[in-house]
């Protein structure tokens, strides 16, 4: 079937099998390998992207379901080489160790801060509760998100 998916502002028209999962469409068809393919069971959240402006686990969405919709991936976070505050926060606070969960964590963090510019540590933990860091680096991830909130002017 033919799909038209707007990814990071660009419309892509592709012929795909209906069973192609969105994560594989992004990585294999479009070469956007920033989003990671992890547990394949919608548990780990390494594959989180935005679909029509809300975070979703892209291993559990058919590309067909994204037809006519907008997708935003980690590749779209920076602006003209200027890192997003969330990315800066992860760099400043050592928010990544092996880096595998990082793209999903950052997409969720960006969404959280867009909707709650001054979250508590508890709210950050709740937001990322469906995502797994196998390095168990949660403390630093929470610090990174709070750093971003502070430096965007929302944090206190």
């Amino acid at each position: 079937m033919q799909v038209n998916v707007t990814v990071n502002g660009t419309v892509f028209t592709r012929e795909v099998e209906p069973r192609l999962l969105l994560i594989h469409f992004l990585r294999d068809e479009l070469g956007l390998t920033g989003s990671h393919w992890g547990c394949d069971t919608s548990n780990c959240g390494a594959c989180v992207v935005w679909l029509d402006d809300v975070p979703v686990k892209s291993c559990t969405v058919l590309t067909a379901m994204a037809d006519g919709r907008r997708v935003r991936t980690v590749e779209d976070l920076d602006r003209g080489g200027q890192l997003d505050p969330v990315q800066q926060g992860f760099a400043e606070c050592h928010g990544l160790q092996c880096g595998f969960c990082t793209p999903g964590m950052m997409m969720t963090a960006r969404w959280l801060l867009d909707h709650n510019p001054d979250p508590s540590a508890e709210q950050v933990r709740e937001a990322i509760s469906g995502q797994v860091c196998r390095c168990t680096g949660y403390e630093n991830i929470v610090r990174s998100v709070l750093w971003a909130a502070k430096h965007e002017g929302g944090g206190t």
Binding site: V48, V54, T60
Partner: peptide, 9 residues
């Protein structure tokens, strides 16, 4: 129920 990301869809 599930987690915040799953609840979105």
């Amino acid at each position: 129920i599930a987690d915040p990301i799953v609840r979105n869809w």
